[in-house]
Each structure stands twice: as C-alpha cells, then as structure tokens.
Simulated assay, not measured.
Amino acid sequence: MARIIGRLAPEDDGLHPLGPEPTFNESMYFNFFDARRALGGFLRLGNRANEGYAELTVCLYLPDGRVLFTFQRPPIQGNAAFDAGGLRFEVLEPTERLRTTWDGPLLELADPRAMADPGRAFRESPKRRVRVELLHEAAGPMYGSAGHDEGPADQAFARAHYEQHMHVTGAVDLEGARHEIDGYGLRDHSWGPRTWQAIHAYEWLTMNFGPDFGAMVSVIQRDPEGTTVRRGGVLVRGGELEPLVDARVEADFAANGLYHEKVRALVRTAKGEALSIEGEVTGFIPLRNRRGGRVTHIGEGMTRWRVGDRVGYGLSEFLRQVE
C-alpha cells in the first residue's frame, strides 16, 4: 500500500455516497506523458448523478502537434462506477494500482485551437478510432483530504480531493497503429458539489521528471479582486513528499491574452528551498464550461518542464472566467 498523507483512507479510492446537492460531482482524472515518444494526454470522468449524466473527456497530444479529443455527457443513473460512454476506470489495488480504458472515436484536430468553437470543431473534424489501455502504479504517496468546508454548494469546487504521482504503462492504439506507453503522470480524485464557475482563476501544474522526482504547483484565486489566493503544491522526491509553502506562476500568452505558451513557476518548500521551474507548452487545446449564462475557459497544455538539469513532462492547466 502506498503511503497516505492527509485525512484519507484506502477506501477513498472507491466511490462515495451520492450527496443531496444538485451539483454533486465525483470525478477521477489521470494524465500521462511518455518522454521518449513526446506523446501524452489525460482522461477524466465526472459523475453528476443528480443531473443524470457524466462529464467525459479524453485528450491525447500527438508528437506532430495534432490533438485527438472528445467531450461527452453520457447518461448515468447513479454513482456506482466510473464507467460511461466508452471510458472506464478501475481500482485494482487501492492507493497502488488503477486501470484506465477507452474505446471509441476521437476528433482529430490538426489545429487544436479550433476547439475554441466546439460546435464547429465537432461538426467538421474527422474522427479516428482509438483504444487506450493504461496501468497507473504509485510513484509517490497519496496526498489530500477527504473533506473541508467550502461554504454554499454553488460556491464549492472540490470539498474532498487528493492527488498522486504515477508510473504509467500500456498502449494507445490509433486505428491499428499501436504506441506502447512507458511514462509518468498524475491522478486526482474529488467528490462533493462542483461548480466550474466557483473559482475566478487558477493555475494547476503537474510535472514528472522520472521515477524519483515529481511536482504539483497550484495557485487558486477565488475572487476577481484577488483578496483570497491560495498558493502551494508539493514536491515528491525519492518517494518523500515536501510541501510547497509558496508558489508564484507567470506565463507568456498568445495574442488573445488567454492561451498560455510558456510558464514560469517560482516555488519554496517548507524547508526554505527555492526552485525555479520553466515550462514550454508543446501541445495546447482550449476548453470551456458553460453554466447559468457564464463561460469558463480551461486551457490545457502538454508542457515540457525544466528545473536545474532535469527535463520532464506534464500538464499546465489555466482556468479563467471569461463571461
């Protein structure tokens, strides 16, 4: 069993009782990046059983800049499993081993920024049959909390949440062309009410530099004025977790001021160590969420990270409220 840090139990790798809130969400997310192939991606299922559907996302970044992508809302009738629309997550050994599988069509986006107009992108993009079979094994401790108060449900984002760096193996099959995967990534699991519009902005950075070194950096701004900003994250080195007590994230953006292209993170550990981390976005897709007349931008960038003489891969996710 992997080490657990925080108010969690191995049983939290399973599904939780469905809450009464209309926006109750239980989601798992997995990303993975194979540095040899410059290929990576992420998979997410968010069960919104009280609304009768799951949020399903599959996103694969190809070495030539193309992105294979889908977003769906398949119907579900309860919160008994992560299994909807062709995407399935299984816990093989709590805290240690999980399996993700996908079998279905994905849009082929030669210009992934076309997803800024999702209706047109879904109508006009060709589709490719893709199978994904991945095994995610612990590469560090599981860290987080099984619950904290976020106030009213319509202002909540993730009352219970944990993350874990993972070693990822398996294969991606693109219309018969099989790509063996041996890389690293991060998974997270959250449950409780979730409204994507509850947070004004955040930057969430995941990084893996090999079996002995990973990081997660998080900056969350709850309100437009910036009066409440939470900065932190973790380093995972040699299997040991080191909390980050400060994190500053800067970025270079495309001409629209929204799509990030380069990222710089200055972080400080609880022991006083300061690190400067540079990131170059190698693949990018703009996503959005709409609810109650509001529009949320979520920019997803596969990112090559550098810290000192180490080079790794991961994801840079920027959320902004735009309308």
Rank of each mutant, 00 (worst) to 15 (best):
L62Q: 09
V58E: 06
M28D: 04
P22K: 10
G14N: 09
H16F: 07
E11I: 02
G19P: 07
N25W: 00
N25M: 05
P10I: 02
D34A: 08
F30Q: 09
A49I: 11
F32H: 10
P22I: 06
M28S: 10
G40T: 08
T57V: 12
Y61A: 15
H16W: 06
D12F: 06
L43A: 10
G19L: 06
E21P: 01
G14A: 13
L43Y: 05
R36W: 04
E26G: 08
L62M: 14
C59M: 10
N25A: 13
P10L: 12
E11M: 03
C59F: 00
E21A: 12
N50T: 14
F42G: 06
E11F: 08
A49M: 04
S27R: 08
N25C: 15
G14M: 09
M28K: 04
S27Q: 11
A35R: 10
T23V: 11
Y53T: 03
L39N: 07
F32R: 01
C59W: 03
R44C: 04
E21D: 12
T57R: 05
R48I: 02
T57I: 13
A38F: 00
P22Y: 08
A49G: 13
L62V: 06
N25P: 03
L60I: 15
L45K: 00
M28C: 12
P10Q: 15
A38W: 04
E55Y: 02
G40C: 05
A9V: 09
F24K: 00
R44D: 02
R44Y: 13
F32Q: 08
Y53D: 02
L60P: 01
G19R: 13
Y29I: 04
Y61G: 12
C59I: 09
G19N: 03
T57G: 02
N25S: 13
Y53V: 07
L18P: 03
F24I: 10
A38L: 12
L60R: 05
E55Q: 14
M28H: 05
N50D: 10
G40W: 03
L56V: 13
A49Q: 08
Y29W: 15
L45W: 01
H16G: 11
P22G: 14
P10H: 12
G40Q: 01
N31F: 06
G52T: 07
C59P: 00
P10D: 09
Y53C: 02
E55D: 15
L62H: 07
C59N: 13
L56S: 12
P10A: 10
L15Q: 09
N25V: 09
E55N: 15
A38Q: 12
F24R: 01
F42S: 05
L15F: 07
N31P: 07
F32I: 04
E11Q: 14
Y29G: 03
